[in-house]
């Protein structure tokens, strides 16, 4: 039996996909390998999940790959704004990134199984944004170094608010805007506190599912093959689910009364300039591998 902590709640499509993956593994191994999924940080908090797998406290887990970007910038290429802003580009980026992620995890005694992107990130705001000028001085909720420097480059005021405090922070004016995916906006009922959703597909960060290498080696050949098969299926299914969620969440947000827009040409071109600057910064921080990754992606 494997124990599997995950950071996101049961209703998130990533978690649903993991439940199906666990089921597939159990069926394919005839019940010899069972995976107990513990969703919503009920076993380990998100920042502790990697350590738990690395030291064998649990055998398998899911986490947001970009959370490791302090450790190595390669993990965070999918958090560079406007680098990959649709599913085809995201797939291409993942193809260029995958081997490097696998190598880094392997060095730490872990093995990557699969990764699934979140729907593209967009802006949620209280008032309309026609161009970058409208973002000047806006209190913009950021959650990591990439989003903070993006907010600064946009002329907004980066503001730190814990995820759980977002609704209240919006309704009391602690923040005026935030960036997250349509799916998350839907789940947190963004229409309660924001009026506009700019579906910009700014970037598509990925969740990865990975195992402890020793736990992996202790499986029989047949079991390993079953897990790998189920992982490949979960990856394909996850990308499809992500696309479906992306399409449906914009529609649902609109149905709930939010104004859903794709952003004016002026706004998008201003943001692309910022994205180019940030990609250059990222490349500098990621060294030779970073350059190779971008080269492979842009070819």
């Amino acid at each position: 039996t494997w124990e599997m902590p995950t950071p996101y709640p049961e209703a998130e499509f990533h978690t649903k996909n993991i439940r199906l993956f666990a089921q597939d593994v159990e069926t394919a191994t005839g019940g010899s390998l069972k995976i107990n999924v513990h969703s919503g940080q009920s076993l380990f908090k998100h920042p502790e999940i990697k350590r738990a797998v690395q030291t064998g406290q649990v055998q398998i887990a899911e986490m947001l790959m970009a959370n490791l970007l302090n450790e190595d910038a390669i993990f965070g290429v999918d958090a560079v704004p406007f680098l990959a802003s649709n599913y085809d580009e995201a797939a291409k980026l993942w193809k260029a990134q995958r081997g490097m992620v696998e190598a880094r995890l392997a060095k730490q005694g872990m093995r990557l199984l699969y990764a699934v992107p979140w729907p593209g990130q967009g802006f949620y705001t209280k008032s309309p944004i026609a161009s970058l000028a409208d973002l000047k001085g806006v209190k913009f909720r950021t959650y990591n170094s990439a989003t903070a420097s993006m907010a600064e480059l946009m002329g907004a005021v980066p503001t730190i608010v814990e995820a759980v405090e977002i609704p209240q922070a919006f309704s009391t004016g602690v923040v005026d805007a935030m960036v997250t995916s349509g799916a998350t906006g839907l789940r947190t009922k963004a229409w309660d506190f924001a009026s506009y959703f700019y579906d910009l597909n700014a970037w598509m960060p990925k969740n990865m599912v990975f195992v402890n290498e020793r736990a992996w080696r202790s499986l029989s050949d047949a079991e390993r093959e079953a897990v790998q098969k189920a992982a490949a299926a979960a990856e394909a299914r996850g990308w499809t689910m992500s696309k479906e969620v992306s399409d449906s969440s914009s529609k649902e947000l609109a149905a709930k009364g939010m104004k859903v827009e794709s952003g004016s040409a002026e706004l998008v071109s201003g943001l692309k300039d910022i994205g180019a600057k940030m990609a250059a910064d990222w490349e500098k921080s990621a060294g030779a591998d970073g350059a190779a990754l971008l080269k492979a992606y842009r070819n």
Binding site: P167, Q168, R187, F193
Partner: peptide, 16 residues
């Protein structure tokens, strides 16, 4: 209530 709102996907402002 915040913890419940996050775990159960319910609007925290409505819960409050």
């Amino acid at each position: 209530l915040i913890v419940y709102g996050v775990a159960a996907d319910v609007s925290i402002s409505r819960l409050f």
